[in-house]
Simulated assay, not measured.
Amino acid sequence: MANEQLKEKIIDYAHQIGIDKIGFTAADPFSEMKARLKMQQADNYQSGFEKGSNAERTEPKLHVSDAESIIAIAVAYPSRMKARPVNKKGERRGNFCRASWGMDYHTVLNDKLNQLNRFIENLVPGFRSRIMVDTGELSDRAVAERAGIGFSGKNCAIITPEFGSYVYLGEMITNVPFTSDVPVDDGCGDCTKCLDACPTGALVAPGRLNAKNCIAFLTQTKDFLPDEYRDKLGNQLYGFDTCQLVCPKNKGVDFHLHDAFEPEPDKVKPELLPLLSISNREFKETFGHMAGSWRGKKPLQRNAILALAHYREERAVEELDRLMRTDPRPVIRGTAAFAIGKIGRRDSYRLIQQARLSETDEAVIAEMEKGLAFELVYQN
């Protein structure tokens, strides 16, 4: 079968199984990407979640020795939900970013790519491949850009002409030579809305991200959140959407093409207080299918505590006091003490002082002191 005919068959089948966009590119090294990686590392802008060496992240033939091409895919996800829960005093809610709505996209896209892989195997004797979705060595964004899925925006997201940046990306390295598709022209122009709206300055330049300062990254860390980011976290439990929400290319974009990605309102905007006492089993049953659960419940609970502090939710003080006194995890005890102080209920500082008498962890004690310092702030 001629490769152009095979390519058309693959495109048709991809659309049949719910792949919204597909592109093809050569399996040549990503030389420009390698230079960018070196610059990111020199500036210490990497998150630490990245996988593989610079060579492994930019040389497809290290993963499939006879690689000839890469098939890139994009699957659209919604940006709006129906029956949005009300966030109100006494029943404060947190927020999962849109990329964590519905079923974990890693599972969904891996399944689609595996279906596509089996389809090609039946057509091409000796077919070899390697599938990657987000957690692989190659940069999904670099592959998608070169394969014509979309252009790389100043907000570091792939922006497609059809679906804006609300797409999940994945790829398949193959040993079949396909004609490369044409990259999409850059469409950002002079717009800097995403850079202007970034609350932490993590977008240090167009297309350059200091991941360590990005709220999406910070929500996934497990240690104490640095002081300078606590107010900026707001009620965010996982991920961050502002750099997409302000993008003009996303105006009016809202595709509901896949049931798997439909948000469950009470799960993507859950009440904060119940999160603080949820068991491991309950957490897995409630959130385990979502991408935002991958780091476990501790970061989400820490973020929920900070969200309650952000709202100064007095109803939360009893539960926060329980955590401050009895939780075995220093990060949770200390963050609870900070939150109690920030909420500033009449008995807040007495509760912290009492717990301080039996606390031995120096990091927790430091957080208690921060909580007690709010008394002077509020008096002034």
Rank of each mutant, 00 (worst) to 15 (best):
V364Q: 06
E121C: 06
Q220H: 10
D254K: 13
D12G: 03
S279K: 08
I173F: 07
C243G: 12
R333E: 09
M39I: 03
M368R: 12
D347F: 04
D104M: 05
L116G: 10
H289N: 07
L237S: 01
S129P: 02
H63V: 00
Y166T: 07
K88Y: 01
E262M: 09
D12L: 10
P274D: 06
A72C: 04
E59N: 12
P177R: 07
F287A: 11
G52N: 08
S69T: 11
A260I: 01
G234R: 05
I10W: 05
D12K: 12
F287H: 11
H15T: 06
L225W: 07
T200N: 08
P270L: 10
H15I: 05
V75G: 15
G239P: 03
T107S: 09
R346D: 15
K89D: 03
L272Q: 14
K154N: 09
F96A: 03
E262S: 03
E319C: 02
E271R: 14
L323F: 01
A27M: 05
R281F: 04
A355S: 15
A197R: 06
E282Q: 11
D361P: 07
K222A: 15
F287I: 11
N122D: 13
V133A: 08
A316L: 03
E262L: 06
K9N: 13
N155I: 04
T174C: 14
M1K: 05
L272N: 14
K89S: 07
H289M: 02
G150P: 09
L169N: 10
P85Y: 00
L351K: 13
D111F: 15
G207H: 12
R315F: 00
D231V: 13
L195A: 08
V204K: 11
S279M: 01
Q353R: 15
C198V: 00
G239I: 01
R329I: 13
F163I: 00
T160E: 02
S53Q: 14
C97I: 00
G90D: 10
